[in-house]
Amino acid sequence: MESLTQITGQLDAILGPMGLIIIVGVLGLTLVAFTLVMMLRQPEDPLSKLKRSSTVTSSTERAQLRQSDRNEQLQKFAKFLEPEDVAELSAKQLLLRQAGYQSRDAVRMFYFAQFTLAIIGLILGVVYTNFLGGGEGMSTQKTIMWTIGPGAIGYYLPKYWVTRRVGERKKQIESGFPDALDMMLVCVEAGQSLDQCIVRVARELRASYKALADEFEVVAYEMKAGKDKVSVLNDMGERCGVQDVSSFVTVLVQSAAFGTSISDALRVYAAEMRDKRVMKAEEAANKLPTKMTLATMMLTVPPLLIILVGPSAHGITQLGNMTGPGQ
């Protein structure tokens, strides 16, 4: 018992009052790292090795081609880096695709980034509060906050980044969509098919609106692969998450269903998009005076008051000094 007390006293003298917590945390992180290393070094399944070394059929080759872009290291942690709920997994995949991440491993990379940044932030918090002297003079509540806070920030940082990218990508698609409709109308009226029109528009929009060009390229590739045109267009509307694109997809689907001219539908919808863009510009211009009012008052009224009231106030103070309390 005395030896345990002496060891605890030595730990308090070397590492401070949080010495025991530091040791437990280091041991926990070491155990997690050891577990990850052992899982990465686990032997390959003999059946998988036999399948890879043997001659495969054409169906197996196609399956390997479909899975060729997946990360084999992340495949070992698929159970931990992917939600088990199918609906949650689909929602996360859609969110990442709207952010521009089209890879099959996008969901796994997202959760891996959350886990890694959380661990790094936690380590930095422990080092700062216990080894760099940042926790000296802090209360227990502040010490815990400065220890766990960086880990929480690291955990939510990927989510904030993806949400921000989704917003920026939607704005870019909204701003470039009227120009894309005008180009599609010109191509269709020149005699090109819808497939050729989408390929040409994707190539022309690459320099100015990369996000919209990527979406059109995905549509072109899916149509070349033989996927149903209606499904391809509906997938594009769902991927973009923009109301204008969803309405455009509905127009094209209805035009194909009822057999009407695609050029007429594009002409009407392109005119509506141009009018809508003009209305947005007018709305932004009408909001500008209201936004400038506060700035104008803050930058104009104080100097004006100084110019008008300053001389009078200075004269009053000078007069008070000349009269004095005894005069």
Rank of each mutant, 00 (worst) to 15 (best):
A285D: 04
Q75M: 11
E282R: 11
L304R: 08
S54F: 09
R169K: 14
S54K: 08
R97L: 09
F248R: 03
D182L: 12
S48D: 13
L194S: 05
K227I: 14
Y111K: 00
I119V: 14
K92V: 04
G16A: 01
T30G: 14
S90F: 10
V230H: 09
L47V: 10
I262W: 07
E238D: 15
N286I: 08
K142C: 04
K291Q: 11
T317F: 10
G326M: 15
L96D: 00
Q93P: 03
G167M: 08
I316K: 04
G320H: 12
V242R: 07
I123F: 02
V230I: 13
W161F: 11
T8A: 15
D182I: 12
L308I: 15
E189I: 12
Q6H: 10
N130A: 08
M279Y: 08
S261R: 13
K79C: 01
N130S: 10
E44A: 13
G191D: 09
N234T: 15
K49H: 05
V32W: 03
P289M: 07
F258E: 12
V199W: 10
V32N: 01
T293M: 15
K49M: 05
L304G: 08
S246H: 11
A211Q: 09
Q318K: 15
R267K: 15
I119R: 03
S90E: 15
L65T: 11
R277Y: 03
E136H: 05
A180T: 05
G259Q: 05
S3R: 14
A265I: 07
T116D: 00
Q114S: 00
R239G: 03
K170V: 07
R66I: 08
E84N: 13
V162D: 00
L181T: 07
Q64H: 15
L95A: 05
D105F: 01
S312I: 11
S312G: 12
W161H: 06
N234A: 09
K171V: 06
G176T: 07
Y160S: 13
R239Y: 09
T250F: 04
W146I: 09
L11I: 14
Y155Q: 04
L122W: 01
I23D: 00
N321G: 10
M109D: 02
P158T: 03
R274D: 08
L304T: 15
K142L: 14
A284T: 06
E61T: 13
L288W: 12
N71K: 00
T8V: 12
S59F: 10
I14S: 05
L89H: 02
E136S: 06
A220V: 08
V278Y: 15
W161E: 05
P178Y: 04
G241S: 06
P325H: 09
I316T: 11
P43W: 03
M298W: 07
C187Y: 12
C197E: 05
Q10L: 11
S3F: 13
M38C: 11
R239W: 05
Y111W: 02
Q254Y: 05
D264R: 15
R277N: 04
L266Q: 01
N286G: 09
A106P: 02
Q67N: 13
R274Q: 14
G135F: 00
